[in-house]
Design a protein around this nucleic acid. Structure first.
Length: 172
DNA sequence: CCCTGATTCGC
DNA sequence: GCGAATCAGG
């Protein structure tokens, strides 16, 4: 691929918006994240404040002394923006509170493992891709727990996904 | 291991 | 100029 004016413009735009190099590379297509970073350097664009974590993934900080509400109401301060190019919905800002309380949660007589609350971009070959929540809402996330081998789901959600009809009856 | 950006250097 | 390989870090 070749750096046309259009592509360079898009690169500048996305970089300014704070997208990571790999995300930009994905949107541009045909280039690696290294190519993007290299180009950013050559263009003398302002780098990121501090290398490492993504600025997009800045988590809301909770005072260590803040008392945990018994019934957490995850106050959300996020907004999603639908982009004209493609049907892509990108998290602009991520700032939700974790409920890092229980490791497990009991729902309807079944033990459900707490999800890692991953975003789409954080999913890999070995993370559970079971979706949680409404994709149109801000609190949408994926389970993200470790999934064995090439399974798309963790051991728990695997059962839900491939539940035999007989067993599904009982669960109801 | 997943990811991030930064740098180097052969092409 | 380009970007894969590598480095350094979370």
């Amino acid at each position: 691929m070749n750096w046309t004016d259009e592509r360079v413009e898009k690169l500048k735009k996305l970089w300014a918006e704070g997208l990571s190099a790999s995300q930009i590379a994905a949107q541009l297509g045909g280039v690696s994240r290294n190519a993007v970073i290299g180009k950013v350097h050559r263009l003398s664009l302002p780098g990121r404040a501090k290398a490492g974590g993504s600025p997009t993934a800045t988590r809301a900080k909770r005072p260590a002394t803040a008392p945990r509400p018994t019934n957490f109401a995850p106050r959300v301060a996020t907004r999603t923006v639908a982009r004209p190019t493609g049907a892509v919905v990108t998290k602009e800002e991520v700032a939700f509170e974790y409920d890092e309380q229980p490791v497990t949660r009991t729902v309807a007589n079944v033990v459900v493992p707490m999800s890692r609350r991953l975003e789409l971009t954080q999913l890999t070959e070995r993370t559970c891709k079971w979706p949680n929540g409404d994709p149109l809402k801000d609190d949408f996330h994926f389970c993200g727990n470790e999934s064995p081998d090439n399974s798309p789901y963790c051991t728990y959600h695997q059962r839900l996904a491939y539940q035999p009809s007989a067993e599904r009856r009982r669960a109801r």
